[in-house]
Structure formats: C-alpha cells, structure tokens
Design a protein around this nucleic acid. Structure first.
Lengths: 110, 110
DNA sequence: TATCTTTGCTACTGTTTTTGTAGCAATATT
DNA sequence: AATATTGCTACAAAAACAGTAGCAAAGATA
C-alpha cells in the first residue's frame, strides 16, 4: 500500500527518498499524527482518533498502516508508538511549532 | 481560500499556528513546491508544472494561491519566489533530505 | 499596427481520496 | 456467560485532485 523509498510515488517517479518522504507527509493527517505521537506519546486507535479531531477510522487506519510500512510507527502493548526512525523524524518537525508562532504574527487574520 | 493562523482549519478547530501550518503542508504538492522553490529557485507557472511531474494546473494554481495567502511565496518579475518567511520555513525542511537518505537504507524495498 | 508568443489561469469532466456512520471479530474483563 | 474494549472494515456521500483544452492579458516581433 505505502510507497517505499526507491519506488515511484504519487508525486514523483524518481523514487528518491526525500520525494517519497514528501509525498507521504503530504497526505492528510500524516504530519498531524507524527506531531501528536511526538507531543503526547503513544495512544490507542480510538485515542488517536479523539486526539485528531475525530478523523474517520478509514483515514486513520490508512495513515497508520502506511506509517507502519514506512517504519515510522509500530503497534505494541502501549498502543501506537513512534519507532526510533519516527522519533528522529519528529525531532526535525519540532522547530515548526516555534516557527509557526512567529509566522502567525506576520499575518493579519482579521 | 487558505486558512490563516487563528482560523479553524480542515484538520484543527483550534486555529493554533502550528496546526494551520501542518494542515497546509499536508495538502498535496505544498511540501514539494516549497522544496522545489528552495532547491531550484524561482519559476514561472509553467516551469513549476514541469518541475513537479506535470501537476495539473488546477492543483498548482490552488496551492500557489494558498501559499501566497499564507505569505510563503509571491509572484514577481522572476516568477513565483519564496518570501522571507518562505525561505525561513524551507530552511527547516532542508534536513529532511539527509534524513530520508539514511531512512531509505533501513527499509528493504525489494 | 498587426501578428505571434508567453504569461497566469479557468472550465469542464472524470478519477481518486477522504469522510461519516454503523458495526464486526477478537481479546480482555467482570 | 455477559460486558467492554481493542483494531479495524463496509459502504455511500462528499471533497480534493487530475487531465485536457483553451482563454484573456501582456510582451515581443515584424
């Protein structure tokens, strides 16, 4: 189901690892799930649904399945957890929070 | 069209800046476009299409429109370019390339 | 001035992705 | 033997995206 590095993806025929990654992250809920698991730790299927604005079980299952095939999360006694790979990736996402705060100040919402 | 920080988004009712950002980045071609503009510089509409696997003009236009409203890109004489904000964001994305390379080695594709 | 090109972009239709509701099978608990 | 919780699936509707064609405006060329 998920496209692994080396394989052509939805958004890039090259199969270059970074392209495969960008494509996976570009699917809905993927980034949010990584973020959620990083910030608030492991969770069961239903817990993750609740944490993610009640995402539909269909979508959640698809994303979790893909993230598992990509070796970014796994399912154990504690629920769905980031793997070592997943943790190292989510570390890269961490600065986005601070960045977004400053960014928000430069945009007039009202 | 685009959801700005402070406003509820597709994937988060809170409007928290980072959620707005994750939602925007989670749309197809968004990450790829930022990546492309960072790596290979400004480009016209048609150039960007070609650079991005011939993305449909409909989708490209939507993403460019959103990215402009989010103050991440702008259109000038040279074509579509990253703004200062866009550049600072794409700097955060840069490490993904190296990460993906190592990541690819840990996954057996064949 | 008239033609030719290139620009960003839109209309339209069909496919893919995502959603929302209901509920199942398996495991654990009481 | 019930009851509850787990991950997950079926199915139909809605939304997002793709693919082709082509338009209007601006610039270059003749």
């Amino acid at each position: 189901m998920a496209k692994l590095p080396g394989q052509p993806t939805r958004g890039s025929i090259s199969g270059r690892p970074v392209m495969v990654l960008l494509d996976a992250l570009g699917k809905r809920w993927t980034l949010r799930l990584l973020w959620e698991l990083h910030r608030n730790g492991a969770g069961t299927f239903r817990e993750l649904r609740a944490r993610c604005e009640d995402v539909s079980p269909t979508s959640l299952n698809n994303r979790l399945k893909e993230l598992r095939e990509l070796n970014l999360i796994e399912l154990n006694e504690r629920g769905f957890v980031l793997t070592a790979q997943g943790r190292s990736l989510s570390l890269l996402l961490k600065p986005l929070d601070q960045w977004a705060k400053k960014w928000a100040q430069t945009i007039e919402t009202n």
